[in-house]
């Protein structure tokens, strides 16, 4: 159970948060995006070992989405960024 530093509320237990996966930039406009590019946006993530940027929402708290950079090996928090 992670101890997550909400950039608005401070450190809270993981059950207060919702995981949103790796941030992906939405390509567009839809009519100009190729199938492969769209598939990559939808499904392909780096899933890096080590430093990993991910979206979290303090869903049982302030409701804000933010980006947390986390080490997926040690689970250490590297940085938390307000959006």
């Amino acid at each position: 159970m992670l101890l997550i530093e909400c950039p608005w509320c401070g450190a809270r237990d993981e059950p207060e948060f919702t995981y949103g996966g790796e941030p992906a930039v939405r390509p567009g406009p839809a009519t100009e995006v190729g199938d492969a590019e769209w598939t990559g946006y939808l499904y392909l993530r780096g899933n890096e070992k080590g430093a990993h940027r991910e979206l979290w929402c303090h869903s049982a708290g302030c409701g804000q989405w933010f980006v947390m950079e986390r080490d997926t090996v040690t689970h250490a928090t590297i940085a938390v960024v307000r959006r």
Binding site: T18, L55, C57, G63, W65, R83
Partner: peptide, 13 residues
């Protein structure tokens, strides 16, 4: 509601 919030906050703030 969670979906509206997420899209608003992360895509069209």
């Amino acid at each position: 509601l969670a979906m509206l919030e997420r899209w608003h906050q992360t895509e069209w703030p």
